[in-house]
Simulated scan of single mutants.
Amino acid sequence: MYARVAKWEGAEGDALRRSADEINAESDAGPPPGVPAKGFMMLIDPETGRSMAVALFETEEDLRQGDAALNDMNPSTDDVGHRTSVETYEVAVDLRI
């Protein structure tokens, strides 16, 4: 399993909450086209305007494909901040209790 972690800054707190609500509402449709993700988590800190998006992929090839597709996407509004970094990792432990 592999993870793509995108960090964001400069958002308005309410915009982060709205963005999370939109993603949750659309989650039944699955990931966006071109993103073969097996899981997704969004961490937000409305007080500081920071967030992290963690997408999980089964294979390195899926990670590369998803990374390319996600890099081509932009937020629908400017109030959710700007992406400051993208890093990829191999998932060593995935515990869900």
Rank of each mutant, 00 (worst) to 15 (best):
M1Q: 01
Y2Q: 09
R4F: 05
A6K: 07
A6P: 06
K7Y: 13
W8P: 07
W8G: 06
W8D: 08
E9S: 14
E9R: 04
G10H: 00
G10F: 01
G10I: 08
A11G: 07
E12Q: 12
E12D: 15
D14G: 15
A15R: 10
L16Y: 09
R18C: 06
S19D: 14
A20H: 04
D21K: 15
E22D: 14
E22V: 13
I23H: 09
I23N: 11
N24G: 14
N24T: 13
N24I: 12
N24A: 15
N24F: 13
A25N: 11
A25K: 07
S27H: 13
A29S: 09
A29K: 12
G30L: 01
P31V: 08
P31H: 03
P31I: 01
P32R: 06
P32V: 11
P32K: 01
P33T: 02
P33Y: 01
G34V: 08
V35R: 08
V35L: 08
P36R: 00
G39C: 10
G39Q: 04
M41G: 07
M42L: 13
M42K: 13
L43W: 06
I44F: 00
D45M: 08
P46S: 02
E47K: 14
E47N: 13
T48C: 06
T48L: 05
R50P: 01
R50G: 09
A53C: 07
V54N: 02
F57D: 00
F57K: 09
E58S: 03
T59P: 05
T59H: 05
E60H: 12
E61G: 09
E61K: 13
D62M: 09
L63K: 09
R64L: 13
R64Y: 05
Q65R: 10
G66P: 02
G66Y: 04
A68I: 04
A69Y: 05
L70F: 07
D72G: 10
D72P: 00
M73P: 03
M73G: 00
N74H: 15
N74F: 11
P75T: 06
P75H: 01
P75K: 00
S76K: 06
D78H: 11
D78P: 14
D78Q: 07
D79S: 03
D79T: 11
V80M: 02
G81R: 00
G81W: 06
H82N: 12
H82K: 15
T84I: 11
T84C: 10
S85D: 15
S85W: 09
S85T: 13
S85Q: 09
V86F: 05
V86H: 07
E87C: 05
T88M: 11
Y89F: 13
Y89R: 02
E90P: 04
E90S: 10
E90Q: 10
V91T: 02
V91R: 01
D94C: 05
L95H: 10
L95F: 09
I97D: 15
I97Q: 15
